[in-house]
């Protein structure tokens, strides 16, 4: 096992309003090895983005709250950092690419200025010529002609905008890149371009990555390790081999695979997971997946499951845990 760049232990996050308390992340453990790409998989509302925002301390300050747990980046406790320290890390050591390139760029700044902003912020006293050179380099790296740096975001297509966002994120050569559904808003052929580019850059720069996605195909293509999230918990985690080739799985993971129409075989019916994710403001006492599970047992109603681990592969389910 390689050295960890990021280690999350027993993280609990809630969103609290006057009306309700939403349990968004409920005690997750996540470890990203140096130079590795971790895929965080799950459906809408599973808590993937909340986890990412917690790492960068970007949770909405009026509602989001970390109840307990620790997040350590290169051994340093992120939650204990003062504002100045987290500012120094955010965008420099840890960078993030958001899902929607249309809304994550500033419409009244040229793309060149936006890339330069990150470089200027994290390199005090840097010469203008040097900044220009690095902006040109970054654009070249993501496959955009440097001559277009004076243009505004609206002059670029969706795929090009996402390249600009990735160029901004990589401008300071971060140690960890968090990519939150970076290709969901793009067409498949453009997605293939962007994924290939991300893969090449990662291999060249040795960046560690947290890849948030709902697409198991993307996981199979570029991730080393995977964690499957459901209702704020990591229900299964392991290497990609554990997840795609392993014999034992969490029933939710099985359900996700059963829901994808296959390109190679001709199945007449899909086997979806019945029902919906439980309301995160009112989670069941036992297993969160119990209501939709085909292997439901009596114990699932009463008791929260324990993690069953075998080598690198962990499953949070009573089927595999020690029976009391």
């Amino acid at each position: 096992m390689s050295e960890a760049i990021l280690e999350i232990k027993d993280l609990w996050v809630i969103y609290k309003t006057d009306l309700e308390t939403v349990a968004a992340v409920n005690g997750i453990d996540l470890r990203i090895g140096k130079g590795k790409t971790m895929g965080l998989v799950g459906e809408t509302g599973a808590g993937k983005t909340t986890t990412a925002l917690s790492i960068l301390r970007l949770l909405p300050s009026n509602t989001g709250r970390i109840l307990k747990g620790s997040i350590r980046f290169q051994g340093e406790d992120i939650m204990g950092m003062n504002e100045a320290r987290i500012h120094a890390i955010r965008g420099d050591k840890i960078a993030m690419v958001f899902q929607d390139p249309m809304t994550s760029l500033n419409p009244v700044m040229t793309v060149g200025e936006q890339i330069a902003e990150a470089i200027l912020l994290h390199n005090e006293g840097i010469k203008t010529a040097e900044v220009d050179r690095r902006v040109d380099d970054m654009l070249g790296m993501v496959g955009i002609q440097a001559s277009r740096k004076g243009e505004y975001p609206h002059q670029f297509s969706g795929g090009m905008k996402q390249r600009v966002v990735i160029a901004m994120a990589l401008a300071c050569e971060p140690e960890l890149l968090i990519a939150d559904e970076p290709t969901t808003a793009l067409d498949v052929t453009i997605q293939a371009q962007v994924l290939t580019m991300i893969k090449d850059l990662r291999d060249r720069l040795g960046t560690s990555m947290l890849m948030i996605t709902h697409n198991l195909g993307i996981v199979a293509k570029i991730c080393d390790d995977v964690a499957v999230m459901y209702a704020g918990e990591i229900v299964e985690s392991g290497t990609v081999e554990d997840l795609f080739l392993g014999k034992r799985h969490h029933p939710y993971t099985d359900g996700l695979f059963g829901s994808i129409p296959s390109l190679t075989s001709r199945a007449t019916r899909l086997t979806p997971i019945p029902g919906l994710m439980p309301d995160p403001s009112n989670l069941p006492k036992g297993c969160a997946f119990e209501e939709r599970c085909a292997h439901r047992m009596e114990i699932c109603l009463k008791q929260h499951p324990q993690k069953a681990t075998e080598g690198t592969h962990s499953i949070l389910c009573h089927l595999y845990g020690e029976k009391p």
Binding site: A192, N215, G217, A220, K221, L263, T264
Partner: peptide
């Protein structure tokens, strides 16, 4: 260009348009 949820195609490159 479709990423397939199958490890056997992991090392196959996309045909990039």
């Amino acid at each position: 260009a479709i990423p397939v949820a199958d490890l056997s195609t992991r090392d196959k490159d996309f045909v990039i348009l």
